[in-house]
Design a protein around this nucleic acid. Structure first.
Lengths: 169, 169
DNA sequence: TCGCCGGCTGCGCAGAGTGCACAAACTGTT
DNA sequence: AACAGTTTGTGCACTCTGCGCAGCCGGCGA
């Protein structure tokens, strides 16, 4: 479907947007004025683009990135939860998970009503405690856990933006 | 090992650190001066704490958060890769994965030399293309993919910091 | 072809925030 | 009692932000 040849309709971001994003990602704190100087465009343009990117949700948040490992939670694991099917969908399970601070992420995934979560712990024993708390819910029937031994690529979006920049050159 | 009762030795962050982090996470752009006013401490203290948090790696980055979905990659999936064991470990595989912009994350996990990755795509067909490119490597012997149907909890660290704040009250 | 319109540009302004330094007070420790 | 480390209040110069303005340009419809 969609247009077979060229004509990328309306890309969510154009080349200038990509360069702004890239600059902000690689050099946070560069600021609006710095970005305008670096990219050779007017400061007002940067501000307008930034406002639009924030409105459209591309720039989700300007919050800093906190490392759970440095906070004392060096162990990361991924849990695939089996959920008992029932009326009400996954909402009760999600509420239960949301109440556990060590649960950093939760996705419903393809399969028989399954949920994939990311959890952290102070050590392996602590991780066990977190898992126990996760499965301590009537809707969770089973949990299979894999521990992250090492993080090889960590939450990067820079290559994606670079890719978009190349595409919309 | 370690102290059996109380005596939390030296927590990586104290209560004030937690409150600073919490404020920065919930209200980015509040700035150093704003934080000092809000928390009722001197501005220099906030700056010193912030510097230390950044040095110790707790504040990993001040970069904004870019949403791949808003960039045109609304489909997220998790792939468990089976890696052919061999000398050199996982490095060649990681390099191969790092070259694919749609691979946002990669962990080596417990099990028979497996890797868990997070990928995004423009749609399901595009996701297939990404997976094909991922498995197009001599070291990757198998890939099993689950698609994220919905993100229920998204990369949150706020509850964790709140938990630390309660603990170190 | 002409005229409109949205985006980009360059400028200046007032206000706010930042980085940095200093000296004083307070903590727990030796 | 003396000590080092941390926190605090204060001041200054500098930069950046947010905002409005007028002028310029290219695309689009009349």
């Amino acid at each position: 479907m969609s247009s077979p040849a060229g004509a990328a309709a309306r890309p969510p971001v154009d080349a200038l947007d990509c360069r702004i994003l890239l600059l902000l990602l690689t050099e946070p704190g560069v600021g609006v004025l710095g970005a305008s100087r670096r990219l050779g465009v007017a400061r007002g343009t940067i501000q307008a683009r930034l406002d639009r990117l924030q409105r459209t949700g591309v720039l989700r948040s300007m919050a800093p990135d906190v490392d759970p490992a440095a906070l004392g939670y060096p162990v990361t694991a991924f849990c695939t939860l089996e959920i008992r099917q029932g009326r009400g969908g996954h909402s009760p399970v999600v509420e239960h998970l949301a109440a556990i601070p060590e649960v950093l992420e939760a996705h419903t995934i393809t399969g028989s009503g399954d949920v994939l979560i990311r959890i952290v712990g102070r050590d392996n024993a602590d991780l066990q405690r977190v898992i126990d708390r996760v499965v301590d819910d009537a809707h969770v029937t089973r949990a299979s856990t894999v521990i992250s031994l090492a993080t090889r690529l960590d939450h990067r979006t820079i290559p994606l933006v670079e890719h978009l920049l190349d595409a919309s050159s």
